[in-house]
Computed example of a mutant assay.
Amino acid sequence: MVSSTDPLARLPEATAFTVVSTTITDGSALPREQFSHLCGGKDISPHLSWSGAPEGTRSYAVTVHDPDAPTGSGFWHWAVADIPATVTELPEGAGDDTGSGLPEGAFQLPNDTRAARFTGAAPPAGHGPHRYFVVVHALDVEAIGVPADATPALLGLTMAPHTLGRAVLIATARTPPASGDAERIEVSRVVPAPADAVFAVLTDPKGHVEIDASGTLMDAEGQPVQRPGDRFLVHMDRAALGDVPLGRYQVEVVITELIPNREIAWTVEGPARSHARHVYGYRLEPAEGGTLVTSYYDWSQVGPEWRRRLSFPVVPESALKATLGVLARTVRRRTAA
Rank of each mutant, 00 (worst) to 15 (best):
M1W: 09
M1N: 09
V2E: 08
V2K: 08
S3A: 12
A9P: 00
A9E: 07
R10G: 00
A14E: 01
V19L: 00
V19M: 01
S21K: 00
T25I: 00
T25D: 00
A29K: 02
R32E: 03
Q34M: 03
D43N: 13
D43R: 09
I44H: 03
S45A: 15
S45H: 11
P46C: 07
L48Q: 03
A53Y: 05
P54H: 15
R58K: 15
V62C: 11
P67W: 05
D68R: 07
P70K: 15
P70L: 14
P70F: 14
G74Q: 11
A79N: 05
D82F: 08
I83S: 07
V87G: 08
P91N: 06
P91S: 07
P91L: 10
A94I: 08
G95N: 10
D96Y: 10
D97L: 15
G99M: 13
L102Q: 09
L109C: 10
P110L: 14
P110A: 14
D112Y: 13
T113R: 09
T113S: 11
A116T: 14
A121G: 06
A121H: 06
P124Y: 10
G126P: 01
P129H: 07
P129G: 09
Y132E: 09
F133T: 01
V134I: 14
H137P: 02
V141N: 02
I144Q: 04
D149P: 00
L154A: 12
M159P: 09
L164Y: 11
L164I: 10
R166G: 04
A171G: 08
A171V: 09
T172W: 14
T172A: 08
T172N: 12
R174I: 04
R174Y: 13
E183F: 13
V187F: 10
V190H: 06
V191W: 03
P192A: 15
D196M: 10
A200L: 10
T203G: 13
D204M: 14
P205L: 04
G207F: 01
H208W: 14
S214I: 10
G215E: 14
T216W: 07
D219K: 12
A220D: 01
E221T: 14
G222P: 04
R227A: 15
L233F: 03
L233T: 15
H235S: 15
D237E: 00
R238L: 12
A239R: 11
A239S: 15
A240L: 13
L241P: 03
L241W: 10
G242H: 11
G242Y: 12
D243V: 10
D243W: 12
G247Y: 04
G247V: 08
Y249M: 10
Y249S: 09
Y249T: 09
V254C: 04
V254L: 04
E257D: 06
L258S: 00
I259L: 05
E263M: 05
G270D: 02
H275K: 00
R277S: 02
Y280W: 05
G281H: 01
P286A: 04
L292D: 03
L292Q: 04
L292Y: 01
V293H: 02
S295R: 08
S295A: 12
D298V: 01
S300R: 07
S300G: 03
V302D: 12
G303R: 04
E305Q: 06
W306D: 15
W306M: 12
R309K: 15
L310F: 15
S311Y: 09
P313E: 08
V315Y: 07
R333Y: 11
